[in-house]
Amino acid sequence: MKAILLEGLYILAGLVSLFTAIMAFKDDKHPTKIGTTLFWGLLAFIFILGKYIPATVVGAMLVIMGFLTAFKQVRFGSLKNSDESFRKEKSKEIGNKIFIPALTIAVFAFGIAQFTNLGGLVGLGFGAIAATILALTMTKAEGKYVVHDGSRLLQHVGSASILPQLLAALGALFNAAGVGQVISQGISGVIPQDNILAGVAAYCVGMALFTMIMGNAFAAFAVITAGIGLPFVFSQGANPAIAGALALTAGYCGTLMTPMAANFNIVPAAILETKNKNRVIITQIPLGITLLLTHIVLMYVLAF
């Protein structure tokens, strides 16, 4: 049951991507019309039919998508949001009710995860469908905006939307190639193999440091979990949900302290016209360090 419902939702997600491809194709002002159409079209194909074709073909499609993003062929076109005066007028007219559809998604996701055995993902899908119906009734928006605004947002998020999935796939390749073993052999000289506290500290600090270097906690998670998390924390019997959750937010502590995370730290300083371009980082370092140390304590206490 759960599997069938999920498969249905993948088709729905594929349709969002397919409509994005179509909207890009019909967008004559689009700077990279063909590339963008191809990218979202391939993603739609993988989502809807990927299960029924050889995995090798899916892999090849991903490589093509990689070429498209590498040559900057996946971009935002000219799909427009409503103008500001319309938005202001409508927000007064509709009032706080406008938050209800948005909250519906979260309430469904949590409710279905907590009280049924269908899981939070099916909940997310049902919530999105319910929210869309609610939003259409509430705003009396024309149905065509479901396609228009969905495509607009997906083009805005852009190719980065497949990054989490690619990182998980990278983890799979690292695993198949035995990268984890190499890192853990290298580190085992430094970290005692059967010391839980040392393993936890290495995992959290490793996440923060790698995130600081790369500016991206998601990428750090794929690498550090295979290299340090698996051999030094999970293998010692850690609760995987707790240790995993804390490892990622330990990475976020690193995000607070690095100019590499330019979107969060450097761009805002420019937007606020600070004199020191590292002003935001300077402000965040005391909290970042304290919270990172707290993560080590939390993981040691809660996950074991």
């Binding site: 999105a128 929210a131 396609v147």
Partner: peptide
Amino acid sequence: LVTLPVIGIL
């Protein structure tokens, strides 16, 4: 992805 249309409309 399935949540994007409704967020866009809102």
